[in-house]
Nucleic acid binder design. Structure first.
Ligand SMILES: NC(=O)c1ccc[n+]([C@@H]2O[C@H](COP(=O)([O-])OP(=O)(O)OC[C@H]3O[C@@H](n4cnc5c(N)ncnc54)[C@H](O)[C@@H]3O)[C@@H](O)[C@H]2O)c1
Ligand SMILES: NC(=O)c1ccc[n+]([C@@H]2O[C@H](COP(=O)([O-])OP(=O)(O)OC[C@H]3O[C@@H](n4cnc5c(N)ncnc54)[C@H](O)[C@@H]3O)[C@@H](O)[C@H]2O)c1
Lengths: 248, 248
DNA sequence: CGCGATTTGTGCACGCCTTCACAAGCGCCT
DNA sequence: AGGCGCTTGTGAAGGCGTGCACAAATCGCG
């Protein structure tokens, strides 16, 4: 129980069940833990306590312990968690040891920035293809990668085993692009275009909408303003939803 | 009760309490409803049923009704919701009628794309200032807006009443930029740099981390793969977390 | 070898959110 | 004027997530 299977990528074919099904909320936090752990590893830390890691990731320590307990028992009581081991564990669970291939569709304003983003590679992903519908864009080279025509998507996706696609096209064409990605065998989509995508149930979609984030912030501004303006001028000590925290 | 106060921006000084405190989950969905409503308005729809709007926004119709009920009773039984009225309501609650001033710090790869993004203006925000620390960037003009030096932040923020700041600088400088924004009176921050920011409790922070989104998708890829590979090869009918849906 | 300090892993209770199901309300048609 | 069909608004139940508080486990030291 306290003896882990072996040093590196675990989850062999015997003991541990192939897949503990983690709560969705836990999954969403694992990447943050991972980033904090990498940071700690760079500073030379061998182990870290739940308290320390929680602070670095901006969460409650009890929550962190419960999250990690779902992956199995990889801490040592009285000591803490082995940083290197935990990194391996989380990267394995997240499937980052595969160095997944990602393609990007829509090399416009935003897509151009994304294509040149180093944070992809450093966190477990390879951008292997860029696509656009505009003939003027096709052939252009970004960061050593040529922009291909969207019609080549299916062929390239199969060749390169692309499972994840990023959509950075105008809203009007996002659904069509999503359909093309699905047809090409992509089963995970990150969508930057505002709007709702319709996809088969075996395909996962995550959305990033800048305007929505700003509007949520705007709401809180509105609330804060109306509180301070009110006669019962209470100190507007914000009730800190789930973002914002202390650490570094 | 069924008679609304007047046509446009409500929340006067009498009837309705100045601020219904909405559940956080509801707030996060209002922007999506708003987008769907604008889309409906463009197609000329006068009213919409909870079922219809829910489909367009990719949520359950009961959830939508409960969300809207928190804003007050703005629907008509047997008919549905008045599209124009509901738009006004939601924009008022979100504080979008103020056309809030936003500043952007860090005009690099990503910042450049954001600065040129039309989706800001069309959804209730004005980008009024761009800042960077690099002397080579300062003075450059993007979309008719000049890049200023970060040292001018405080002065400009006060002049322009900037309450919302966007951080698009490298991770290492994000905390320093956040501190500068707070010192300049900014009380809402949208952060694109990976990592946890430490801010006073009256400041709201929201984070957008592309790599985290991809890692969550990667997890689901990993899970899907291990399911299909398993001997008890069940059809991998994804248990659809909260994203992905049908509509438009 | 035993003991105290430390830290993990978790049982439990509470609150939030989601979803179902239905009564109440509204408009239209006859 | 009355009845019928449609849609909202909401009570209630169930599930999920959070955080407290503590027992169990480990290490280091005397
Ligand atoms: N620019 C930003 O900072 C920003 C921020 C948030 C969200 N967004 C969203 O991201 C998306 C892209 O924004 P942008 O500013 O880069 O737009 P853009 O117009 O600069 O770029 C869109 C690109 O997509 C290409 N395209 C159009 N249809 C296509 C198709 N069917 N297949 C392949 N490629 C196609 C176009 O040729 C163009 O190169 C939009 O939906 C926008 O709302 C942008
Ligand atoms: N490029 C992307 O697609 C992308 C995607 C997701 C997240 N991010 C994150 O967004 C941030 C910016 O990425 P980027 O690719 O644009 O980087 P970049 O290096 O191209 O741009 C950073 C800019 O910030 C400026 N800067 C640095 N320190 C500053 C300071 N103290 N005050 C003001 N300005 C300062 C630099 O001069 C530069 O212009 C990074 O944290 C990155 O991880 C980028």
């Amino acid at each position: 129980m306290s003896q882990q299977r072996h040093g590196s990528t675990p989850g062999g074919a015997d003991g541990v069940p192939a897949f503990p099904d983690l709560p969705e909320a836990t999954i969403a936090r694992l990447p943050e833990y991972l980033r904090a752990l990498h940071h700690l590893a760079e500073t030379g830390a061998e182990t870290v306590s739940s308290e320390g890691l929680a602070a670095a990731a901006g969460v409650n320590s009890a929550k962190l312990r419960k999250d990690l307990s779902h992956l199995g028992s990889y801490g040592t009581r009285g000591v803490g968690y082995d940083v290197a081991l935990l990194i391996d564990q989380i990267e394995y669970i997240l499937g980052l040891d595969k160095n997944r291939a990602v393609c990007l569709v829509g090399v416009g304003n935003l897509g151009h920035a994304l294509a040149g983003y180093a944070g992809f590679a450093s966190r477990g992903f390879r951008v292997v293809a860029l696509f656009d519908a505009d003939p003027k864009k096709v052939g252009e080279e970004i960061n050593g990668l040529a922009v291909r025509h969207i019609d080549d998507l299916e062929r390239v996706a199969v060749e390169e085993s692309i499972a994840i696609g990023v959509i950075a096209t105008p809203p009007g064409t996002a659904q069509a692009v999503a359909d093309a990605l699905v047809a090409a065998g992509v089963t995970s989509i990150l969508n930057f275009a505002p709007g709702v995508l319709s996809v088969p149930s075996n395909v996962d979609v995550r959305k990033v909408d800048l305007a929505i984030e700003l509007q949520i912030l705007s709401f809180h501004e509105h609330r804060k303003a109306s509180l301070t303006a009110l006669p019962g001028g209470r100190a507007p000590a914000v009730a800190n939803g789930d973002q914002e925290a202390v650490g570094s």
